[in-house]
């Protein structure tokens, strides 16, 4: 028996909206500790990793680990039927479920929707991602980072991110010309302006903006985003989902041939 009830169902809707351009189908692994999901884009350049802790749910029960293979497109269709204020409950009684039940309830419990989504059997192509001590970590407004990526992607397809003790520089070079945006440490008490740099080792890495713009669809999940980098490592972009878990994106760098 597996049942997970999320009080703020809108979070689940936002998560699916944030990943639906990147991955087509995912395996959600349910265990006693919560839900986890890892999936790569078709080119194996980017990866999304979701972890939702059981104590972030209103109700959570998972008698034994199960894997739920979902088509993101079909999941989206079902979640469109959930109101932003609804609670969302996922449920199945089977051990090897062939479908997953969804219940959407409005606040007054006066409207209850029930859907059953057919499950897919997907071979898991999961990667072992070691816990990394990143040498450059940038915490900043997710809206601001999203804006920087959008603005720079009109000049070039790739952005070079260079960190130093007191600032991070986003540089682009394209046919029309070049440009850079430098953001300094800023302990402002306004979320949108605050920038926290923890630079043990400066890095200079280049990434495809197309993927960063896809990751930034998660901006509605958290007002802050963290960029985690080490030389010759994929970038890890993390959106923490308050007291529920986190949505992480990994992106392989571009390097000179």
């Amino acid at each position: 028996m597996f049942e997970a009830k999320l009080q703020q169902g809108v979070i689940f809707k936002k998560i699916v909206d944030a990943i639906k351009d990147l991955v087509k189908s995912v395996n959600i692994d349910a265990s006693t500790s919560g839900l986890s999901m890892q999936a790569m884009d078709s080119a194996h350049v980017a990866l999304v990793s979701l972890k939702l802790n059981e104590n972030g749910f209103k109700d959570y029960r998972c008698d034994r680990p199960i894997t739920l293979g979902l088509s993101i497109e079909n999941l989206s269709k079902i979640l469109k039927c959930a109101g932003n204020d609804d609670t969302i409950t996922l449920q199945t009684d089977e051990e090897e479920p062939s479908s997953l039940k969804f219940f959407f309830e409005n606040q007054q419990a006066s409207k209850i929707s029930e859907f059953s989504l057919n499950l897919m059997s997907l071979d898991s192509e999961s990667l072992g991602i070691p816990d990394t001590d990143y040498s450059s970590v940038i915490q900043m407004s997710s809206a601001e980072f999203s804006r920087i990526c959008k603005e720079l992607s009109s000049i070039s397809e790739t952005v070079e991110i260079e960190t130093s003790k007191e600032s991070v520089k986003f540089s682009v070079q394209g046919d029309i010309g070049a440009g850079s945006i430098t953001v300094k440490n800023n302990q402002s008490d306004k979320d949108v302006d605050r920038v926290d740099l923890q630079i043990d080792q400066p890095v200079k890495l280049t990434f495809a903006l197309r993927y960063l713009n896809m990751f930034n669809k998660a901006v509605s999940l958290s007002s802050t985003v963290s960029l985690n980098m080490s030389e010759e490592n994929p970038l890890m972009v993390e959106y923490k989902i308050d007291d529920l878990g986190s949505l992480r994106f990994y992106l392989a760098p571009k390097i000179s041939d």
Partner: peptide, 14 residues
């Protein structure tokens, strides 16, 4: 021109 790397070059399967 910079070449796009793949994640498999940094992380091992499963």
């Amino acid at each position: 021109q910079k070449g796009q790397q793949l994640l498999n070059e940094y992380y091992n399967q499963g």
